[in-house]
Structures are given as structure tokens and as C-alpha cells.
Write a protein that binds this DNA or RNA. Structure first.
Lengths: 136, 136
DNA sequence: CCCCAAGTTGACGTTAACGTAAAGTGCGGA
DNA sequence: TCCGCACTTTACGTTAACGTCAACTTGGGG
């Protein structure tokens, strides 16, 4: 059975971040691992949270935004109807933001296509004297 | 004919950023508008560059990355074959990065779906006493 | 028992991306 | 002519997200 908990070092190595980063996220309230004495112990759930944060980072989310996201995934038992409605609203917001990013990516992909085309055109029409030595 | 150049203030208003930001981008080498005396004059091309930077920001790109992107779109006449190959390589990198982001967005959308579902479940099963006053 | 690797808590340093305040320039209108 | 507004440069301040020591403690191996 795949070991259920991790040390901070293990997590850091696996996710390719530093322990400092993990502790920082804890300071920011994004994680709250258990303790055995002083030592932090991370559950699979903590690992999931971390990966969620890192995914957020890859999309340009701030830690505050990632914290919001994490909270969205937690309809805690103590949420009343009003709070739940607010949650649904925030979910819709995030969704809209993702759609905007999708659009931005599409546009950027097209621009990259054009850039590549121009680049290849330039290679074909380039002065052959600038060839940098692959012919004997 | 739609006026061809813009003042820094016009651009700032249109793109919803500050003039400080625009000047900062210039300091970072992302823009180099013409001058009429001291005053900066922005061409449509400058405007395009700016929008490109802002799109990059929405996707979490740093200004350095945006500068790279801008350079990708400029197969300057003075690029030799070696440089052009390097450009194609960078274009491929950016493409890969965008694909990663696309994947991240997909995953996140699914997670939002689940979050929304859980949230609505919670609303249905919630203690009706927490209803905050919409029934007469 | 002692050491070392891996953990811990401070605390200060650093980088990116601007904000903000100060002090001056240039120009179209009353 | 003087006002006001938009522009300019210079320079210091700020926030987020860590990096980088320093000075501990702690559990297991020789």
C-alpha cells in the first residue's frame, strides 16, 4: 500500500519545489499539515492541495486566488444558503476567467503559427552566406 | 480615418492601465515609441505590442517572457540561419507551454464542475433554518 | 555516545512590477 | 499673461513570493 503520508522533504522533491516554499504556503494559510511533535506530516489531501496551488501558479494565479479556489472545493458543513450562493458566484467567476484564458491561448497560438511561418519564410529567403557551417 | 497615433494617456485609458505602467514597459525595453520633443507618440504597432503584453499577463507571463514573445514575432532581417533555428525552437517551447496551460485549464474546469455539484448538493441538504429570508 | 541528515523557527534579503510623490516642461484657452 | 492640464524625469516606497542564512532540536546509525 502506497505510503499514506509524506515528510516535507519528500513532497518538495516530488513536486520540484523547496521546503521553504511549502512552509511559506502554510504561513499564507494554504496548508495546515498535522504534526508529530514539531515535524510536519502531509496527508494525500495535503499533496492534492499543493498540486492545486502549483497548477494555479502555472496559470498565473496568485496564492490568494489559489486559496480562494481551495475554499471553493470545500463546501464546509457550516455553509448556509447565502454563503453557498456566494460560492456558486465565485465558481462562475473563475469559470469566466478560465474562458478568457482559453481565448487568450487560442489567439496566442495563432500568432505563434504566423510567427513560425514568417520565420520559415525568412530561412528560405535568407542570405545563404549566413549559413553557419553545417556543409563540409 | 481613425486617428493613427495615440498619446500615452489615451492608450492608458483604452487599455485600462496607468501611464506609469506604459513608461515602465518602455524602461524594460518592451516599447520604444517615437517622440515629438519630449512627448511619446504611440503608433498602432505600439498598441498591438501593448495588447500582446497584457494578454501575456493574463496568462501569467512575466514581462521578460512577453519581450521574448515580441521578439519571436520579429524575424528581423538580420537573423541568420542559426538564429532563425533558435527562434523556431523558442516558438516550439512557447507552444508547449500553452499546451500545458490548456491542460491545466481543462483539469481546473472539471474541478470547478465538481465543486459546483458539491455546492448545489450542500444547498439541497442544508439546514433550512439557515435560509436567510427569501420566503414570505 | 556522538554525529549527521533532515527537520524546526526566526529574521533579513531579493526580484518583479508597478505605485506614488516631487519637481519641472509645454501648450491651448479665458 | 496666467491657468490648468497633460506630459516629462527622478527617485523612493510597496507587495508578493519566495531565497538565504543562522541557530536550534531530533531520530537513527556506527
Amino acid at each position: 500500500m502506497t505510503k499514506k503520508t509524506h515528510s516535507i522533504g519528500e513532497l518538495a522533491r516530488e513536486l520540484d519545489i523547496t521546503t521553504r516554499t511549502i512552509r511559506f504556503y502554510e504561513d499564507m494559510g494554504l496548508l495546515s499539515p498535522e504534526r508529530r511533535g514539531q515535524t510536519r506530516i502531509y496527508t494525500p489531501a495535503d499533496r492534492v492541495r499543493l498540486k492545486l496551488i502549483l497548477r494555479g501558479k502555472r496559470l498565473g494565479f496568485s496564492l490568494a486566488e489559489s486559496r480562494e479556489l481551495i475554499e471553493l472545493y470545500n463546501p464546509d458543513a457550516d455553509n448556509n444558503q447565502t454563503q453557498l450562493k456566494a460560492l456558486l458566484g465565485k465558481i462562475a467567476e473563475k469559470r469566466a476567467q478560465l474562458l478568457r484564458q482559453l481565448h487568450d491561448i487560442e489567439v496566442m497560438q495563432i500568432e505563434l503559427d504566423e510567427a513560425e511561418r514568417r520565420c520559415q519564410d525568412a530561412m528560405r529567403t535568407a542570405d545563404p552566406s549566413t549559413l553557419s557551417g553545417e556543409s563540409a
